[in-house]
Amino acid sequence: MRFKSYYWSVVLVGLVLGVMLSVQFRITRDVQHNKAIQRAQELADQVEQMKKEHEVLQAQLLRMRGQLEGLSNESLSPQIKEEMELATIFAGLTKLTGSGVEVTLRDSNASQKFIDNPNAYLVHDEDILKVVNELKAAGAEAVAINGQRVIAATEISCNGPAIRINKKALAPPFVITAIGSPETMESALKMRGGVIDYLQFFGIQVSVKKLEQLTIPAYSGSIKSDYIIEADIDTEFNALNQS
């Protein structure tokens, strides 16, 4: 009997030791896990810092562009003044106001019901691309998506649930604003078999509002030209004067 109880307590201690070891092992893993978490936290802090810097530089950039534009108003050459105004409007570097439409795209409610492919019921980069293209075809003079001005180099990329436009992550709902003829743009979107029909087939919720007046912000990113070779300014200007 005495031998037996000794035997049992050894078994018990052995069991406990085993549990302890496994727990210890898990804790060690958790600590490594923690390092990864620390790294992510560090990264998040850096990104936060850079975003602040980004804002500061963005404001500086806009101010400097404004200063140069202001100088063109004092310019002796009326041609430069006129060209500058037209070019900045066209390029997307000025805030614009006018009549137009506001199109709102929301993810489908059906996504929960059709678990097989919920992806089909979310707003995708392609959907936005199509709506923007349709608006341009209907004569839109300026377009913005959730306040991001669409310029020639604007990309629309899908990144999980968020969509990136002009490198900014935007979340749904997506509000596309366009300046132009409200009637022409609305009827182009609502055409039978058109973009809205297509989107509604997938249950995407689309609403179009005609507006007497709306404003579209200026492009606030950088003007990237690392690869474009600057032609001789003089020859460019001669070409300009001849045309």
Partner: peptide, 8 residues
């Protein structure tokens, strides 16, 4: 102006 025209 030339820079903006290229960009646009």
């Amino acid at each position: 102006l030339a820079r903006i025209r290229r960009f646009a």
